[in-house]
Design a protein around this nucleic acid. Structure first.
Ligand SMILES: [Mn+2]
Ligand SMILES: [Mn+2]
Ligand SMILES: [Zn+2]
Ligand SMILES: [Zn+2]
Lengths: 138, 138
DNA sequence: TTATCGGACGATAATACTTATCATCTTTAA
DNA sequence: TTAAAGATGATAAGTATTATCGTCCGATAA
């Protein structure tokens, strides 16, 4: 409800606006790794006058304030990560399809917290490059 | 020498041209993950009339024919991977610096060859997200 | 509730990166 | 040597993203 989003904005130190709320709700309802254009298309249905620039600005704002996570690799454009579970990605080297794979299922659990040159680890992001089932047939 | 590059081209089924040879040699002498513009700047010193389009076209050609490997993630532009060793990357979440880290040093050796949905693994690419030593001080 | 002010909005220009086009030149293979 | 195929350089076009700016909205205090 609206009060929840108002609180979320307050928690993250950003102002609450109608466009932001619609954007947030639309994004919540999306799966996978939507592009700004895809988000824009859906927001426009509820707020026809919305500008693409506003969508870009607020996606960045959401990402910077930690509400959503960016996921730009392997796509030609910026994407937002809508899967909030700990997971990694399988990338088909032929058709470029990107599929989530859970941390457990991947069977990799890195533990080192500090690496060479004093690099402090926040998290690991694994891309498994290979062939999806569909592309193996062809 | 020239004969070597001629042979390399023959092996990969591409024509041997002066621009390609200079491009190849310049790239061989670069480290890290150079951008097309960086490569272009150096090639221009030896072949002043070279076009940026030619650099782009031949970088793609080299990547497609397996002479070099693409490494585009995390940068705003296409990059080429000049480190031919098996390695992964440490990405600083603050300054965006990208540093190579050897497979052994990372201490991760994934072995699964097949994952969910029948995905056939070719290789793993690990990005370690965190803070570089420099950014930890600030 | 209303006034005020800083931030957010929408329209659109500008930028950065990359690719397409095309006339000319070079390489390859016969 | 020659003809076909392919490569080059100049430049236009395309795509994604960001900057600019005048107007409007929303948070705060009177
Ligand atoms: Mn994902
Ligand atoms: Mn590298
Ligand atoms: Zn595929
Ligand atoms: Zn850093």
């Amino acid at each position: 409800m609206q009060a929840d989003f108002r609180q979320l904005c307050a928690d993250h130190g950003i102002a609450m606006t109608h466009q932001r709320q619609v954007l947030y709700e639309v994004m919540q309802g999306m799966e996978g790794h939507p592009s700004p254009e895809e988000v824009y298309a859906l927001v426009k249905k509820k707020v026809p006058a919305v500008s693409l620039a506003t969508v870009y600005k607020n996606i960045h704002l959401f990402v910077e304030s930690g509400i959503f996570r960016k996921m730009s690799m392997h796509h030609g454009s910026v994407r937002v990560e809508m899967n909030s579970e700990d997971h990694h990605h399988m990338v088909c080297s032929k058709c470029k399809a990107i599929t989530d794979i859970g941390e457990k299922e991947l069977g990799l659990s890195p533990t080192q917290r500090r690496l060479s040159d004093g690099f402090l680890v926040e998290r690991y992001s694994v891309d498994v490059i290979g062939l999806c089932a569909k592309c193996q047939k062809a």
